[in-house]
Design a protein around this nucleic acid. Structure first.
Length: 638
RNA sequence: GCCGCAGUAGCUUAGAGGUAGAGCACUCCCUUGGUAAGGGAGAGGUCGAGGGUUCGAUUCCCUCCUGCGGCACCA
């Protein structure tokens, strides 16, 4: 029969040939893992799949992203086989490939720890060496249930029972049978011995539901080549070095104390960054027509009941009993802004849009296991803002918010932004009709703003659909920061209104928006993005002026004053220490610029500038130092 | 909150049923030096908290706190 390859060439194979014969024919027998056949659109299939005359076949190797996923998925099966050897009564849940590897969830009386991973890996290597084929069999649901019940595989039985089809596919390696949709690599030997590794053990709930059994999850990863594996682990190491929880305290940016879990002590350097960020955002939003307000920390329970937060988030709110009244520390700022809206004269359509912003300190009683450095806190400051507008202003306001977000991200070098659209969640307030309008408005606005987004089904806020802005840092990691939410519900619940041009009372639409989300979290991201080497404008200490010998101390002080005069954040170091020692000291704390003065500089009225991470120096005249610095380090804030 | 792991000087860490050592940092002394650590001395620890076992616990056991890897949650 005639078989076509992806490049259009044709080969002739005997009847009954499989995709594997194509691999053999093309000398790819050792590399091809699975295949794509045009007759079976966009689906990967096993190489054992029978071909038909006229099929176009594409062989897929592990250098293809989908092929790599198959490799990892197969590695998960090998892991399962290895685990079943350790505990024959082990119950298997699921073992999929994920973005950077694979895992298998199991229930066992044996508790695994990181120390056990080597031994498990060793068993996996034996299985890989034995080059056991993956064998597909298709059986009826009943037969499969009988099989998996007979050896107590209750999770597999539950999975099968949930399947629609009449038959299920099962893959075996040796005697080990696993329910699986496939496809798989031809045999275990296709997993490269030196390019896979088990990485960690963790707990995970069966079917991701905290009401279900807690399982043990064993994570691993596999790559096409050793080089790719090494690059991956090098990246993991690099991420560890940049970890804001390590750099933050080291660089005197912040501290989190046992006495206040989930709250930040901003240290001397961190508070400079915090204020620079806050001032910068203040400036941007002011240019975009916002005014700032500040609302109380403690507000009465009734307010939270009206907003719906009491019902939905009571458990996560800090509540204060005060005599006869019950107050809550604000977990967000929206109700406060609604109260601000209600004050003063009755609003007219001429007043809209009203763009109100607040650096709002919010407290949420996050569960103990969810806290993570600056990324997830119990107390954090939102760069919050609410736009009260009419329905026909949604589009123009959305466009403005998007451009503002892009502008701010670009200032920090984040140019790769993706957007997610989250629609109505199961638990929500408001009628479906209102949700229809809200979702449609946000969709139209997104299109008008030229956004390309992916949809996160059911992930919206309880009061409205939302856009989430995700930025990519220099290690390629995604961080969700900005958000824009369209809300028809809270204005309704609080009964706020404006008078439209025909004199009629209308309820305004409320757009909730944040650019960076939480200042704390954004600074955490910045620490990791810059690896602690902040750009000049954000550096807490921009210049250290250091003398070489005592004779130059006075001149060094003059230089330091001159820098301060120019608005440069500088400190003076005239300690009696060798210049090498000082250079090392300030390189370690990542000061971007050192101004070194010795006998020569003093005589010539100059300063020797030394840049972080470079041994080049540059000598400039003292009176030109301010101009030189602003030329060398242009301010990206515009 | 759940599963697992960890907590020794400011930081990084060694150690063991008989109350602890090191490096960096710190203080003092010597060195007046030219672009990533000069030399010497000193000080610094109720070994996360509470309870139990023991003649004796920082070490073994239990409870709690905090953190770490995940899961769940995330207005």
């Amino acid at each position: 029969m005639n078989i076509f390859l992806k490049d259009g060439s044709k080969i002739i194979l005997p009847d009954g040939a499989t995709a594997r014969d194509v691999a053999r024919d093309g000398g790819l027998e050792k590399k091809a893992l699975v295949a794509r056949i045009d007759r079976l659109p966009s689906k990967l299939v096993d190489l054992t799949t029978d071909l038909q005359d006229g099929d176009t076949v594409e062989l897929v190797t592990s250098s293809d992203g989908d092929g790599l996923s198959v490799l990892r998925h197969s590695a998960a099966h090998v892991l399962a086989l290895a685990l079943s050897e350790i505990d024959p009564s082990m119950k298997f849940a699921i073992g999929p490939a994920i973005d950077d590897g694979f895992y298998y969830d199991v229930k066992s009386d044996v508790t695994f720890s990181t120390d056990d991973l080597n031994a498990i890996e060793h068993r996996m290597r034996k299985i890989i060496e034995s080059d056991i084929p993956f064998v597909l069999s298709v059986m009826s649901k009943e037969e499969a249930i009988r099989h998996f019940s007979s050896n107590g595989q209750k999770y597999k039985v539950e999975l099968i029972e949930g399947l629609e089809a009449d038959t299920v596919s099962v893959y075996s390696i040796g005697g080990f049978m696993d329910l699986c949709r496939g496809p798989h690599i031809p045999s275990t030997g296709y997993i490269p011995q030196d390019a896979f590794k088990l990485t960690s053990v963790a707990g995970a709930y069966w079917r991701g539901d905290s009401r279900n059994d807690m399982l043990q999850r064993i994570y691993g990863t596999a790559f096409s080549t050793i080089e790719e594996k090494e690059a991956y682990f090098a990246m993991v190491e690099e991420a560890k070095l940049r970890d804001h929880r390590k750099l933050g305290p080291e660089l005197e940016i912040f501290h989190i104390d046992e006495s206040a879990p989930g709250s930040v002590f901003w240290l001397k350097n961190g508070y400079v960054i915090f204020n620079l960020l806050k001032d910068y955002i203040s400036d941007v939003i002011r240019r975009h027509g916002y005014y700032l307000v500040q609302t109380p920390q403690l507000m009465d329970r009734s307010l939270w009941e009206t907003s719906g937060h009491w019902e939905k988030f009571r458990e996560n709110m800090f509540v204060v009993e005060n005599g006869d009244s019950t107050m809550a520390i604000k977990p967000m700022n929206c109700p406060g802004h609604i109260i601000c809206y209600k004050t003063g004269a009755v609003k007219s359509y001429r007043d809209l849009p009203i763009r109100m912003a607040e650096f709002g300190l919010c407290h949420r009683n996050e569960s103990s296991g969810s806290m993570h450095g600056l990324m997830r806190l119990r107390a954090f400051m939102q760069d919050d803002g609410h736009i009260f507008c009419s329905e026909d202003q949604i589009i123009s306001e959305t466009i403005d918010v998007c451009s503002m977000i892009k502008e701010v991200y670009a200032t920090f070098g984040f140019n790769d932004i993706t957007v997610k659209f989250s629609d109505r969640p199961e638990k929500r307030v408001g009628s479906d009709e209102v949700w229809d309008i809200a979702e449609r408005s946000l969709q139209e606005a997104s299109e008008a703003a030229g956004l390309q987004y992916t949809v996160n089904k059911g992930e919206g806020a309880f009061y409205g659909p939302k856009l989430e802005f995700v930025l990519k840092d220099c290690l390629g990691r995604d961080w969700q920061c900005g958000t824009l939410q369209v809300d028809f519900n809270l204005p309704e619940r609080f009964g706020i209104s404006y008078t439209d041009s025909s004199g009629e009372r209308k309820t305004p639409v409320m757009l909730h928006r944040a650019i960076v989300g939480s200042l704390e979290r954004f600074i955490g991201i910045l620490i990791e993005h810059y690896a602690g080497k902040f750009p000049f404008w954000l550096s807490p200490v921009q210049v250290v002026v250091a003398n070489i010998a005592d004779d130059n101390a006075e001149y060094a002080a003059t230089v330091c004053s001159a820098l301060k005069e120019c608005g440069v954040r500088s400190i003076l170091d005239v300690e009696y220490e060798k210049i090498n020692y000082k250079i090392r000291k300030y390189s370690v704390c990542k000061i971007p610029l050192l101004a070194i003065v010795g006998r020569n500089e003093q005589a010539d009225g100059t300063v020797s500038l030394r840049f972080l991470g470079s041994s080049d120096t540059r000598t400039v005249k003292l009176e030109e130092i301010g101009d030189t610095i602003s030329q060398l380090f242009p301010d990206p804030r515009g």
